[in-house]
Write a protein that binds this DNA or RNA. Structure first.
Lengths: 167, 167
DNA sequence: CACGATTCAATTGCACGCAACTCAATTTTG
DNA sequence: CAAAATTGAGTTGCGTGCAATTGAATCGTG
């Protein structure tokens, strides 16, 4: 299972050992990528019962906290842009979970509000959290500690460190 | 910044406190979701120079290890199915990085092999790893420890624990 | 007040990611 | 050996995700 790549470093002469991409199993990013998919697959059967996708569920989570938000506010909280959110919100509207109305004060904005159906869903969706919690299978403290590490890493990656673009 | 949700537990009477979805900031899954996107955004400018997407880069990483793989083998390693891989591999083929040939022994299978252009890319792509490494900004040991935790969690989520489906 | 810059939402185009399906090739089994 | 079951790759359809663009509304500055 533990692969050595000493042979590879010899065959490609022009590259120094350090600049050769690491094997897939060694990559932190791939672990995150895989875990993200695994979470999605875990959520899917739970959310299918409500006809929701995971990103749609995230929007509802945000709305259950704030009741009414502009598209921009939702995008800031979830890290998504209008290109993703506009059609998603249209579908949540069509499903009857939210309403979309132009803001009277600032007609550029659109207020996304929970409908009664959308509010009512919060109670039913409680099972989702408990199911996910048991699937994660670790203590709240552990989960929080892990979350803190991931958040810190996200923060670091999101800082526009120009030297990254080797242009 | 630290929100209390005691008020919410009172307004929705039919649900017990524990079964109400947690606020967005508390969710481990959302942290993974955000980190995955952050990684993607970090990789994008680096891979754009080669005309590659991150999943395409993952396929090449796998091929740089194995030289030749079937679609199934790539799918097993990356956790993707043919619905995702078939068109992706067709694009990698069109770009000249891989070749696709039916297996003589078992004509159901298609062998994906690196072209010379695909092999040559490995050396050039070395910069990507170093750039990502510096963006992550933590020691190899820390990265490995974090990866181990994420892998364990992925493993746990991937086990088909039937009780999850509350049917 | 006016005009240029900015902001917000929506749209378009492209590439995943996955479910559901098709079809051919192979394996199982009766 | 033949029929049934399984496997491997591809296709279709739908929902993200994001870059790039559009168009309307608002803001900032002169």
């Amino acid at each position: 299972m533990t692969k050595r790549r000493a042979d590879r470093t010899e065959t490609t002469a022009q590259a120094v050992s350090l600049s050769i991409p690491l094997p897939l199993e060694d990559q932190l990013c791939f672990a995150v990528y895989s875990l993200s998919h695994a979470f999605n697959r875990t959520y899917k059967p739970l959310l299918d019962r409500f006809g929701l996708t995971y990103p749609q569920y995230l929007v509802l989570l945000a709305l259950w906290e704030h009741r009414v938000m502009t598209v921009k506010q939702i995008g800031d909280q979830l890290g998504l842009d209008s290109g993703t959110l506009s059609p998603l919100l249209k579908r949540l509207d069509a499903a009857g979970f939210v309403s979309r109305t132009r803001d009277r004060k600032d007609e550029r904005q659109v207020n996304i509000a929970l409908t009664e159906k959308g509010e009512a869903l919060q109670a039913e969706a409680g099972h989702v959290q408990t199911a996910i919690g048991s699937a994660i299978g670790c203590s709240n403290d552990e989960a929080h500690a892990l979350k803190a590490v991931l958040d810190a890493l996200t923060e670091r990656l999101s800082q526009p460190k120009d030297p990254l673009i080797v242009g």
